[in-house]
Structures are given as C-alpha cells and as structure tokens.
Amino acid sequence: MSKADNNTTDFGYKEVPREDKVKHVADVFHSVAAKYDVMNDLMSGGIHRIWKKLTIEQSGARAGMKILDIAGGTGDLTLRFSRIVGKTGHVTLADINDSMLKVGRDKLSDKGAVANIDFVQANAECLPFPDNHFDIITIAFGLRNVTDKDAALRSMQRVLKPGGKLMVLEFSKTNNPLLSGVYDFYSFNVLPKLGQAIAGDAESYRYLAESIRMHPDQETLKGMMQAADFVNCKFQNMTGGVVALHTGIKP
C-alpha cells in the first residue's frame, strides 16, 4: 500500500515503482527458498508451527472441502489441509514464486501428499480460478508481499464460495512496549545476521523485518477486508500481536 504516490509502492522501507515490487519480492524468495523452512524454525523458535496449527483449527476445514492456500510457499498449511479434506476434497497451493513452488512440491511429494493437491503459479491480485469456487482461502505470511493488497482481497472474495472463509495470517503490530523493543532489536539486529549465517542473505531478511513494519496494523487490515466485501471480519492476536489471524466470510 503506497502512501507516497500511485506509481510507487513500498518494498520494505524503500519506495520502488509499483511494477518492480513483484520482481524484488521474487528475488527475495528465489534467494531464500532452499533454506525457507530452516529459517522459519530458527527465526520464530518453531512458534510459526503453532500459529499455523491454530489457523488450521479455526478454519473449519473438513473432508470434501476445496481449499486454496495462497502464498503457500513450502506447503505447511497445504499438507495439513490435504490430510483433513481427504480423497473427496482438494487443496490448491498457489504461489507467485516458482522457486518456492518447487521446494513446496518436492517437500509434499516426499511426504506422500500429492493425490489431492494442485500446484499453481499465480498472482494473488488476479487469481486464475472460477468465481465461487473455494470453501476456504488462506494466505499465511504472504499478503504483505503483495503489491496491491486491496486487489488481492477482492480477487480472493471473487473465487470464494458464498459462506466461505478467508483467513489471513500475517505479522502485525504489538501493543506491548517491552515486547516491541525486544522485537525491534531482534528484527533489525539479530534477524539479518541469522539470514546471513544460514541462508547467506542478510538483505532478504532485512526486507522481511522492514516489510512487517510497513504492513497494515490489525484494525487497518480488518477495514480493508470489509472494504473488499467480507463480513464478520475479526482478528485474533497471537504472541502479543506479533502475528494476527484475520478472518472474514463472503456473504
């Protein structure tokens, strides 16, 4: 969401031309794809698994459902969803980044989860699916990388069935000043060094920290979901607001 002008958008703390953000984000994820899971575990101390598990539990997923996992990356949510929806259901893992898709597909194949999963390279702003198609859509740690978040939310609303649920799991804003201080220090001092040591890429992890700060806070995102014609929009803070799970229903 650019606040500067209509031709530029944020890429971390930098302003870049709108059409270039996709390429910049793609470069980040091409760079980190191979070490993505290791880094997630290291950066969050494994807590990202709990955030994702809570998302699954609140999704209301059950056998036979059609689920779209946008920015599905290495397939953590897709794997669990594919087991829940079973043979009669279907999960589509969509990601704009082909490196991440490849890592995700390899990982899920290794785990034997292939029968009810599709892999689609797609931009969240213009999803290549029919209207009213999915029962549940999730986007976990992906929305902040999208250039036009409003367009993406509208696109998700279109492909969701009436009564279907959108779940946005994303880094957010913590209100606790002590936690904020520790979190800022960690994000800007520890994280890039960790990225350099493990993935050989400090810049991508600096972008991660910056993009989290630039992402809309809980209330703003809730308002954006309402503007995209979702109802019953609400959010649940996790780990003191470091992460928030927003949910909305397509009327």
Binding site: G60, R62, R80, R83, I84, K111, G112
Partner: peptide
C-alpha cells in the same frame, strides 16, 4: 483425532 494415510492429525478445536 483425524486419521489419514500418513498417520494422524490432532486438533484441539474442530468446528463440526
């Protein structure tokens, strides 16, 4: 408990 071909899925909440 949700059984599947690779084992089990355990959840604290299930909305059905």
């Amino acid at each position: 408990l949700l059984p599947h071909s690779s084992g089990i899925e355990l959840q604290q909440n299930y909305q059905h």
